[in-house]
Amino acid sequence: MAMIDSTRRSFVTRIGGGAGAMALLTVVPHPASAETIDLPERESAILEAAFGSSVLTPGKISLDMPILAETGLSVPVTFKVDSPMTEADHVTRIMGFAPGNPEPVLADYQIGPRAGLAEVSTRIRLARTGFVYAAAKLSDGTLWGTKFSIIVTLGACVEDIFDLDWQRDAERRAMRAEARAAAAAE
């Protein structure tokens, strides 16, 4: 079947570097720096529990996925870590997160040097447009991360289309419960 173009990364690099307005499409691994990847609170806590720290240095790990998905039902993704995968220097764990999902952990792989390659491809489900995060722990204990902005179009179309009506329903029910409680108290 049709798979995702393997040159996407270089392409995205090109447009990311080319135009200021498109800078948010840039998803190349950043060179290691003092900066860290900002994770939302819930995902930070999960990472803290898994790795003992939620401080991710940008770099080493990359996310290969489409920048656009019609629905979030089955989105191809490849987690890839730049590692020789030797006894002395290898990846021990890879995790993926989608903060827009009700259950944010997309992937959790524990691997070792015998894996030979620190690269995993799978399909994930995404509830809405937003960032996908990836984190990798190396055998030297360092933590690396990246994030990727993806547009989910069906999310844009049907996202919360009913929420307005459910919200009104909740407000009405609360209002009446209050009125009944007040009447009962009299």
Partner: peptide, 20 residues
């Protein structure tokens, strides 16, 4: 199309092309 970016997305996926 009622969802043009979605049409674009499925064509890109089916053809293995960049949506861009």
């Amino acid at each position: 199309f009622q969802n043009p970016p979605g049409a674009l997305a499925v064509v890109a996926e089916q053809l293995g092309m960049d949506p861009i």
